[in-house]
């Protein structure tokens, strides 16, 4: 066994007010506390270890700049092609479809893909379904998006989705998103509702929000293989257990207040902040799904057609 470091660096995008980052803080707290400080994990929020550019976290882990991380799948999809599965438009549809992926054999398969890249994933979490907001008008049909400048997080698939919908996609890191919204450099963005609330995007001129559940990102709790290997077997189990617990809390927080089990607190909060919320019916979603079908088919090949067919079957079975 090698000696433990005095501090382990955990990187996460965003900050405590959003469920994804909160899960990272919980993981760090649990590990530090239960190990009696033997494994001292410090969270660096806002992807600050990589200058705010969350798409560089995976490379930085492999270079030893970051020890632990909580990723959103969207941010590693430019490097791990299979992760684009979560970004196929209108594949997952709701939490039942989402759970069918992360809790089933497909989730295990995706973890094995990650393991082949020097990192060790230890738990699936959730960032949430991504809903679109903008400063101009309510979006109900693809036509409403026409000409709008929409920021996306990462992945050429999003550039193609929004181009197919007639919008102007612009890629930028989360750290740049706030200045871009506040300067009016972009009209809109897409992120989970609880992130929208946590970052008070209503104060950044985002007045309209459309619930369309077009894609969802999972959270991934992981650490580098050398760091995990440096721990005793008991501590390895401890790190995994803490990740599982933090991930469970993260998933619950991501889904909170969106209507499940009669809890509409997040939607009510949006109304209180004068955000117009448009909830699309299944038929209205179909119009968007039709418009982006070609992108879906193209990226199904990037992800692996076989994997996508099995994912489709799993989602259908879970929602039946």
């Amino acid at each position: 066994q090698t000696r433990y470091k005095s501090e382990y660096k955990l990187s996460v995008v965003g900050n405590r007010t959003i469920p994804l980052a909160d899960g990272a803080f919980r993981w760090a707290e649990l590990v530090t506390e239960r190990s009696g400080g033997r494994i001292n994990v410090k969270v660096y929020p806002g992807s600050q270890l990589v200058g705010g550019d969350q798409t560089r976290e995976l490379v930085a882990m492999r270079q030893g700049v970051i020890d632990f991380a909580v990723f959103s799948t969207i941010n590693i999809s430019p490097q791990i092609r299979e992760m684009n599965l979560f970004s196929l438009p209108f594949l997952l549809q709701d939490s039942r479809g989402f759970d069918a992926i992360i809790k089933g054999p497909i989730g295990a398969e995706l973890f094995r893909t990650l393991e082949s890249r020097d990192v060790q994933p230890v738990a699936w979490g959730e960032n949430g379904f991504r809903e679109i907001s903008n400063s101009k008008k309510a979006i109900r049909t693809p036509d409403d998006l026409r000409g709008m400048k929409i920021r996306f997080a990462a992945g050429a698939i999003f550039a193609e989705i929004f181009t197919a919908l007639g919008a102007n996609p612009v890629q930028m890191s989360f750290a740049d998103l706030q200045p871009a919204l506040s300067t009016g450099a972009v009209d809109g963005q897409e992120n989970p509702v609880n992130l929208f609330l946590g970052f008070r995007m209503d104060t950044l001129a985002q007045r309209h929000l459309t619930i369309w559940n077009y894609v969802a990102d999972a959270g991934i709790f992981l650490l580098t293989k050398p760091v995990l290997a440096s721990f005793t077997p008991e501590d390895q189990a401890l790190v995994r257990d803490c990740a599982q617990q933090a991930a469970q809390e993260q998933i619950a927080a991501s889904r909170k207040g969106l209507g499940a089990n009669g809890d509409r607190s997040s939607l009510d909060e949006l109304a209180r902040r004068n955000v117009t919320v448009t909830i699309l019916s299944d038929a209205e979603k179909q119009a968007f799904a039709r418009a982006t079908r070609s992108v879906y088919d193209k990226y199904a090949q990037t992800v692996g057609t076989d994997l996508v067919r099995r994912a489709e079957a799993a989602v259908t079975a879970a929602r039946a």
């Binding site: 492999r62 941010n75 430019p78 490097q79 992945g155 050429a156 550039a159 612009v170 890629q171």
Partner: peptide, 17 residues
């Protein structure tokens, strides 16, 4: 080294891929 890592890890640009 940084560029080399991006090359061998096959990192794609987040915008245009």
């Amino acid at each position: 080294w940084y560029t080399w890592d991006e090359y061998r890890f096959e990192v794609l640009s987040p915008g245009l891929g």
